[in-house]
Amino acid sequence: MAEGRTTSGGVASGTLLRGSFPAFVCLQGTLYAAYGIESPFLPSFFGERGLTPGEIGLVLAAGTLARLVAGPVAGHVADRYDATRLVLGIAAAAAGVISFGYLAGTGFWTLLAVSMVHATAIAALAPLADALTLRAAEREGSFSYGWVRGAGSAAFVAGTLAAGQLVGAMGLASVIVASGIMFLAMAAASVGVPAVPARREASVSGLTGMRTLLAQPLFRRLLSVAALVIGSHALNDGFAVILWREAGIGPGTISLLWSASVASEVVVFVLVGPWLLSRLSPVQAALLAASLGILRWTVMATTTAVPVLAVSQLTHGLTFALLHLANMHLITETVPPQLAATAQTLYGTFGLGVASAVLTGTAGLLYGWLGAGAFWVMAALCCLALPLAPGLRPGAE
């Protein structure tokens, strides 16, 4: 029998296609396509339905709070009953169905209620999908988690581009329909991915699993470093485009700058990140991400020269994707299987969600007060991560 062609990672392409890799690409692709379609235009949809800017902010903030509570609960349920895939499928189906509730909503209280229920449903989708992907990649050995996550990032971009076309052709309601369909497609895709094999270890009841993880110095440091370095991207996500427009940079150039950062993210997830992590320890990866974060935000604080910005944007894959990959490896290596889903949802909630929510909420105040100088604050956050990074190794105090 002829052997399959080999991928860049040395895995036969035939083996790759026969494994669960295509199923996980479909799972993560539909998830991030749904996010890419919905997230940029949801605030505008609320405005079209009569909400004031202040009410839109309250609705979005309430959704964030709902996710912060619902995520760890869903992770605990998935671990408690050894049912990660089932919980994921139910949550994705619920997210799809609830999405259509926005279409019937008018007025602040109705849309607030729909938003909170929808946020509850989507809270654990990414963490649970990551938990399944990581375990399958480790078990099968034929693909890397980064390959799947990179496909998700590409799907997010494709979804955002498609949403822009939909809004132009059919209005804002079309993106609600499209994102709902993609969440339902994710629910269907969840059936095709393998469940985590039944474990022999006893499940952890109550809040014991969360307390066990949060009591571990390594896990707490992981959350802290992620919150500082990945959280520091919040100001960039919200105000980089505003800063560049105020500096006279045209929309075409801005699109290229933004695309460069997304492209670097995909390249690191799929190619560079797995290669680097085979040569760097999690400590070294975190130090590299934090150091480049300091450099990146220093550039943003001091110049709007397009060539310099272009180089700076290309570091996004290392300031975000590399650290995220390193954290996924650490969680896989150090967290017991019976707490995998709980660990992922705690990481998504406290390592990413809380920091991003707080920093996004204060970004406007910082930018209004300091302008481009607000990026010095983001650089300072990355500086704070440097002394914490050496603790990202098993056995470190």
Rank of each mutant, 00 (worst) to 15 (best):
T7A: 12
G9D: 13
S13Q: 15
G14Q: 11
G14K: 02
G14S: 14
G19E: 10
F21Y: 13
A23Y: 11
C26K: 02
G29F: 04
L31R: 03
A33Y: 11
A34D: 02
Y35A: 11
S39H: 13
L51A: 04
I56D: 04
G57L: 09
G57E: 10
L60K: 01
A62Q: 02
A62G: 09
G63L: 11
T64M: 15
V73F: 14
A78M: 03
D79E: 05
R80C: 05
Y81S: 09
Y81W: 12
T84F: 03
V87W: 04
L88Y: 04
G89W: 08
I90Q: 02
G96R: 10
G101H: 11
L103R: 06
T106I: 11
G107I: 10
F108H: 10
W109C: 00
V114A: 02
S115W: 15
S115Y: 15
V117D: 00
A119M: 13
A121G: 07
A124W: 08
L128F: 06
A136T: 11
R139F: 09
G146T: 12
W147I: 06
A151V: 12
A151C: 14
S153F: 01
S153Y: 06
A155L: 02
L166D: 08
V175G: 04
I181W: 07
L184P: 01
M186G: 05
A187W: 08
A189M: 09
V191L: 15
A195E: 14
A195T: 14
A202H: 13
L207P: 08
G209A: 01
L214Y: 02
Q216D: 07
F219H: 01
F219A: 01
A227M: 05
L228K: 04
I230R: 00
D237V: 13
G238H: 06
F239Q: 08
A240E: 12
V241G: 06
V241S: 10
V241I: 15
I242R: 14
E246W: 04
E246R: 15
E246N: 13
V262K: 08
S264I: 10
S264Q: 07
V266W: 06
L280I: 11
P282Y: 06
A285Y: 11
G293I: 00
R296W: 09
W297E: 08
W297L: 03
T302G: 10
V306G: 06
V306P: 01
V308Y: 04
G317W: 05
F320K: 00
A321G: 06
L323F: 12
L323Q: 06
M328A: 14
E333D: 15
V335Y: 00
V335F: 02
Q338R: 15
T342Q: 05
Q344P: 02
Q344V: 01
Q344N: 05
Y347D: 02
Y347T: 01
G348Y: 08
F350S: 00
L352N: 01
L352D: 00
A357K: 07
L359G: 06
A363S: 15
G368F: 11
G368D: 13
G373H: 13
L384G: 08
L384M: 12
A385R: 05
L392Q: 05
L392R: 04
A396C: 07
